[in-house]
Design a protein around this nucleic acid. Structure first.
Lengths: 341, 341
DNA sequence: CGTTCATGGATTAACGTTAACACAACATTT
DNA sequence: AAATGTTGTGTTAACGTTAATCCATGAACG
């Protein structure tokens, strides 16, 4: 059997409680006692039973992470940031993927509540009625990472989707593009909506109307980018630039353009979004919008932990600035090119 | 306060224990009682306190996952398989990254033991003395995923590193290559050792000796592949093929070759390993060795759960077959080209 | 018709920890 | 010197669940 507080108590002669307090660095234990107890505990190879402690103290030091798909490089990096920060703050993380399904998200929340997590970091499906109700009933802190749902934006850590997409499209419009193919993301997430809005905003700023036939839907994967561009070309749609909801789509788009003997950026310029690690290794290097993924995860945990440790700490939307990363997939002969690789 | 078994007991008139058993589908409860209790529990929005249950039953239905780096696309896919399978088997996963540091791995194991996990899935650092001792002392089941440590191979799920690398190198040797640059992986993992052995094996099968100056070390990231090939070219090393420990390196290598105006595959052929999702979107599409990453994760959980549920279930190494995926980064004019993308 | 057995449920005692309270010994204040 | 802290520790009671027992009822049996 594993070593318990009782074993240390028996061995040292102190009470279980004193042992517990000494190991927890409680201030009311004398230095001498603390040292003795810690030494013996080490000798005996004591590993605290966190489950038992959680139960009594009503704090599990565990955070639930509800991601859409941990294998998606975007989330993979966000989760990395979360894991790192959580580990350093002495929290453990329980990870669940929802595959963007509202019902899975509900199940995940309930499961994690049952496991007594101290807080939740969620990449939420957009405005699902049932889920909105569920969030409102939550009695533990929760942070939406990289996304939002209506009415609870103050729980979100965001990275300027509207502005970022507007910047990208504006960049192209300013350089004369008028036939821009836009490949949108999955329907049920706020990012898709915001980036579409950014697109519109940029057009309007140039007093232009969008041709809806240049907006294609997708689920945001590399295969979609490839297939959508193929389809557009097959339909005989003419365009001089492709703006993608994310880098994965853009990578697929690059592939299709290459196969169709269209040169990037000379024949067609391509814009991604997210700045994945792999994007600068594409041929050509992908121009994109920077999203601080790792930082996003870290920030989510930082905020969450503050809420956990101080229930009075108010919720406020955290906004991170988007930034264009101009590389080889767009033409670089202009002054606002401030990035290399 | 949350609904507890006691609340349901009060409401239905049954004892706490009967309620507990009814909800757990215990056979000794009548159908009528079970139905009533379940209905009321639902009405009241009961969510079982898993922590309390774990404590009493000594089973947490939690698995600890010790990965090197969850943001690495290889692990990201393995973890996805793990998460999916675990969720379906009604287990939750606690995720920790070690950054390939033996000391972090130890900390992770102890942390997870303290959290009373029912089993561990580990991507272990190779043969760290202290860790080997720690594994041997473990009283819960554990599976090494995609790697092994000496003396405990039977705890591993493997995917034929030696054979896979030998196949790849043999393929090139058979097609006349004699100057093959090999970029190896991180020193402290079994995969690096095995793949180097596969390399050697293939050379020996062709009665050739390896020129050690063609073997470069790396930590297995895209940047390394890029830098190593750059360095080799700068050193004036002549080679007709680059074989990489993994796809990430190969992607970096492709970049460097392109920048140095070397055509792939015409001037230099490039071989990766792992078959990452992104690899078929490279320009040119990357030839590689298939590793069933998702399946690897799933299998690890399958095995682990069997061990958890039946302590007598014997450990045996699970081997998965490697398979060449020949694409555009190698010349395809030969009969054994059986793959597209 | 008493005995045995199955069925359905209640009672009690844990699981290992921490919180709340109590209290002795000694120091400090007034 | 009494009153009031302060320091360090022990005692007791939870936390919410499940395991281990035990018990009542009625059916089945010879």
């Amino acid at each position: 059997m594993n070593v318990k507080l009782k074993d240390i108590a028996d061995r040292t002669g102190f009470s279980i409680n004193t042992v517990s307090r000494a190991l927890r660095e409680d201030s009311r234990i004398s230095e001498a006692t603390r040292v003795t107890i810690r030494r013996i505990a080490n000798e005996m190879g004591y590993i605290p039973n966190v489950v038992a402690g959680s139960m009594r103290s009503n704090r599990s030091r565990t955070i639930g992470i509800i991601s859409a798909d941990s294998a998606n490089p975007f989330f993979a990096e966000v989760i990395q940031g979360i894991e790192e920060k959580a580990r350093k703050a002495n929290y453990s993380i329980l990870l669940i993927n929802t595959e963007e399904q509202a019902a899975n998200e509900r199940d995940a929340i309930r499961l994690l509540l049952g496991r007594q997590v101290d807080g939740l970091v969620i990449a939420p499906v957009y405005n699902d009625e049932e889920n909105l109700a569920l969030y409102r009933e939550l009695t533990i802190p929760y942070i939406f990472v990289g996304r939002y749902v209506d009415g609870m934006q103050d729980h979100s850590i965001l990275h300027g989707d509207v502005e970022g997409q507007a910047l990208a499209v504006d960049h192209l419009l300013r350089h004369g593009h008028r036939k821009i193919l836009y490949i949108a993301g999955p329907k049920n997430i706020s990012n898709t909506i915001d980036r579409l809005q950014g697109l519109t905003q940029a057009y309007h700023a140039h007093n232009l109307e969008i041709d809806e036939s240049y907006i294609l839907s997708s689920s945001g994967h590399m295969e979609d980018g490839y297939a959508r561009v193929n389809q557009a070309l097959n339909r005989g749609l003419s365009f001089t630039a492709v703006v993608c909801f994310n880098d994965l789509l853009a990578i697929g788009a690059l592939k299709s353009l290459h196969e169709n003997s269209l040169s990037v950026p000379d024949d067609v310029e391509v814009f991604g979004f997210d700045n994945l690690a792999m994007s600068q290794f594409m041929q050509p290097r992908l121009t994109t919008v920077e999203v601080p993924k790792n930082r996003l995860g870290q920030k989510a945990v930082e905020e969450l932990v503050r809420h956990i440790e101080d229930p009075a700490y108010p919720y406020t939307t955290v906004n991170m600035k988007p930034r264009l990363i101009l590389r080889e997939s767009t033409l670089a002969n202009h002054m606002d090119n401030n990035a290399t690789h």
